[in-house]
C-alpha cells in the first residue's frame, strides 16, 4: 500500500499573468483513495489535466505509474481512467455504444467490449437505460455512465472530477460503496475531487486541500486535525472552514 503511484514535484502552471498551480509537491500511493478539496478555481482541475498530459506544466515534473505524461501520454492514458467534470457523451448514440467506443479506443476487441459494457452498465445501475440515447440521460445518469466509461478500460488509477454531483442521495451512497469495493478488490487507486466534505470524509484515506493554486495541507483527517487544531477528533468540515473562513489558527 505504500508504493507511490502519482508523484508531483514542484508542479507549476502559469497562464500569462495568472498562476493556476503554484509549486505543488504531492505523492499518492497505490490503492489509496485520495481526495482533492478546495474552492472553485483553486487549481484542482488544472493539476488533474497535467497528470493526464492534457496540458503541459510550466515547471516541475509529474510521474504517473512511473511514466512522464508529457513524454509518453499514451502510456499514462492507458493506465488512467478520467471522468471529467460534467462529462458528455455522444447524444445520438445509446449508452452501450458510447461504452463500446471507449473500449475499442483502448484496443479491446469488439466482442469483449460488448460483454464488458453490459456488465458495467449493470454495475452502475443503468441496465434499463442501456439502449436509450445518451442525449436522454439525466445529469446523474451521465455521471454513472461516466464511471462505467472510466472502468471499462481497467485502469490502475481512476481520476474522478466531482463525480457525485447530480446523483441522487441513494445513488451517491452506492457510488461511494462501489469505489471502496473497487479499491479493496482490485487495488484501484482513486483520486477524487469534490465539494461535498461529508462524502470525502467518508471514503478518502487522505486529502489535499488546495487554495489559489497552492497546496494548503495534505494528510489523513487525524493528521490535519492535529496540524490545524493541535488535537485530534475534529471533522473535515471544521478543518476545511479553518482554511477558508479567516483561518488564522495555523
Amino acid at each position: 500500500m505504500s508504493e507511490p503511484i502519482i508523484e508531483l514535484v514542484d508542479l507549476t502552471k502559469k497562464y500569462r499573468l495568472f498562476t493556476a498551480v503554484d509549486h505543488i509537491n504531492l505523492t499518492v500511493r497505490k490503492g489509496e483513495i485520495f481526495g482533492f478539496l478546495g474552492p472553485n478555481g483553486a487549481g484542482k482541475s488544472t493539476t488533474i489535466l497535467m497528470m493526464l498530459g492534457l496540458t503541459e506544466p510550466t515547471e516541475g515534473s509529474v510521474r504517473v505509474c512511473g511514466i512522464d505524461p508529457e513524454r509518453q501520454p499514451l502510456g499514462v492514458k492507458r493506465r488512467v481512467g478520467y471522468l471529467p467534470e460534467d462529462v458528455g457523451f455522444y447524444d445520438n448514440r445509446d449508452g452501450v455504444f458510447n461504452l463500446i467506443y471507449t473500449a475499442r479506443l483502448n484496443s479491446i476487441p469488439e466482442d469483449e467490449a460488448k460483454t464488458r459494457a453490459l456488465e458495467l452498465l449493470q454495475l452502475v445501475g443503468l441496465e434499463d437505460a442501456a439502449q436509450k440515447n445518451a442525449g436522454q440521460y439525466s445529469r446523474g445518469m451521465r455521471q454513472r455512465l461516466g464511471l462505467a466509461d472510466v472502468l471499462i478500460k481497467n485502469p490502475e488509477i481512476a481520476i474522478l472530477d466531482e463525480p457525485t454531483s447530480g446523483i441522487d442521495p441513494q445513488g451517491v451512497k452506492s457510488f461511494l460503496n462501489l469505489i471502496l469495493k473497487l479499491r479493496d478488490e482490485h487495488g484501484l487507486t482513486v483520486l477524487f475531487s469534490s465539494h461535498n466534505l461529508h462524502q470525502v470524509e467518508e471514503v478518502c484515506d487522505r486529502v489535499a486541500i488546495f487554495n489559489s493554486g497552492k497546496l494548503q495541507a495534505v494528510g489523513d483527517i487525524e493528521a490535519l486535525s492535529n496540524q490545524v487544531f493541535g488535537e485530534s477528533g475534529h471533522n473535515l468540515e471544521e478543518i476545511y472552514n479553518c482554511f477558508f473562513e479567516g483561518g488564522t489558527e495555523q
Binding site: L52, L54, P73, L74, G75, K77, R78, V80, G81, Y82, L83, P84, D86, V87, G88, F89, Y90, D91, T102, L105, N106, S107, G146, D149, K153
Partner: peptide, 14 residues
C-alpha cells in the same frame, strides 16, 4: 460543447 472531447482525449490516442 458536448463535453466529449476531454473524455476522448483521455483515452490512449494521440
Amino acid at each position: 460543447n458536448r463535453g466529449t472531447l476531454s473524455r476522448i482525449l483521455s483515452q490512449p490516442i494521440y
